[in-house]
Nucleic acid binder design. Structure first.
Length: 293
DNA sequence: TCCTATCTAATGGTTACGTCA
DNA sequence: ACTGACGTAACCATTAGATAG
């Protein structure tokens, strides 16, 4: 999977279980920005057009071609294949996989290497050491302490991606069933899902960061404009001739909750949000008198 | 061919939770 | 009911192998 793929199609899979963050960066809005919960399958675009995320079915999917996927039937990870023997842990990698170096590193700690306990009743043992080579392998390769790293095949990755789109976490049974199906160890499937969730989270963080940067830019711009206005108003106030024609300040209304200055919504008034954060709490714009109207 | 950046499988540590004595 | 030991699973930061440019 290439980097460009990630940049174009971003899976926000974790948000399937959490409420996602809506990035409303529409520059036409009088408000600076707002945060709100939103349903999936919506498109949101940055003001510069650089950020376009198509819904939540955005997936990291990518070079992993759909052509390959058609050779796979959808795996129902909720139901184990009849051929799956839970007692058996697959201690091998798929023939499709590429193992470039063959010697494993150290085994996981004794704590994790031991089985028994809650998982025993299901005979679902996620042997974390299974994917790290056996002692036989170590002996076979002179006991070198280099890490085995396989490369998942495109087909395996495609199936994992499809499964991830359905649910970003797997229970032990699902994990083992998927592992069997793919000819991987349960640990490898587990690791893949962990890393996949991490990638999703990282991408989401990048998106959030980009959004916040734009918020800062907008706020800075707004602050600059307000300061300029304040200077102009002070100048007017110091000019007795002009000051006499101004409306008395008592016509202004102040929202008690957000402290926004407001006036009657009449002629040519522009709605100005003093604080986009406060607007979130309000849920609607609060009209304020704009001095330039 | 070497170097570098990037991707990603794998590792080790930590934490939370459930079970049991 | 409370507590500590233990097992399990998920998360996280990091490492390191593979690969493309």
């Amino acid at each position: 999977m290439g980097k460009e793929d990630l940049s174009l199609s971003l899976s926000l899979g974790f948000a399937q279980t959490h409420h996602p963050l809506k990035l409303n960066l529409n520059p036409t809005s009088s408000s600076i920005s707002n945060l709100q919960m939103f349903p999936w399958n919506q498109t949101f675009v940055s003001s510069s057009g650089t950020l376009l995320l198509q819904g939540l079915d955005l997936f990291f999917k990518t070079q992993i071609d759909h052509q390959n996927q058609q050779f796979f039937t959808k795996i129902d990870v909720n139901s184990l294949p009849s051929t799956v023997h839970l007692e058996e842990e697959t201690g091998f990698s798929s023939p499709n996989s590429t193992i470039s170096s063959t010697v494993s590193g150290k085994r996981r700690s004794e704590r994790e290497g031991t089985s028994g306990g809650a998982g025993d009743d299901l005979d679902v043992t996620l042997d974390r050491s299974s994917s790290r080579g056996t002692s036989d392998e170590e002996e076979e390769h002179g006991g070198e302490a280099c890490r085995k790293k396989l490369r998942l095949s495109k087909d395996q990755s495609a199936v994992l991606e499809d499964t991830f789109k359905e649910h970003d976490t797997l229970n032990p049974k699902q994990k083992l069933a998927l592992a069997k199906k793919l000819g991987l160890t349960a640990r490898q499937v587990e690791v893949w899902f962990q890393n996949r969730r991490a990638r999703t989270k990282l991408k989401q963080t990048e998106v959030d960061c980009e959004y916040l940067k734009r918020c800062v830019e907008k706020l800075t711009e707004e602050n600059r404009r307000l300061e300029k206005e304040a200077v102009e108003l002070r100048a007017l106030k110091l000019s007795p001739r002009l000051y006499g024609h101004m409306s008395p300040p008592t016509t202004l209304l102040m929202c008690p909750s957000c402290e926004r200055v407001a006036g009657p919504s009449n002629h040519n008034q522009r709605s100005v949000s003093l604080s986009p954060w406060l607007q979130m709490a309000h849920g609607s714009t609060f009209d304020v008198v704009h001095p330039r109207s």
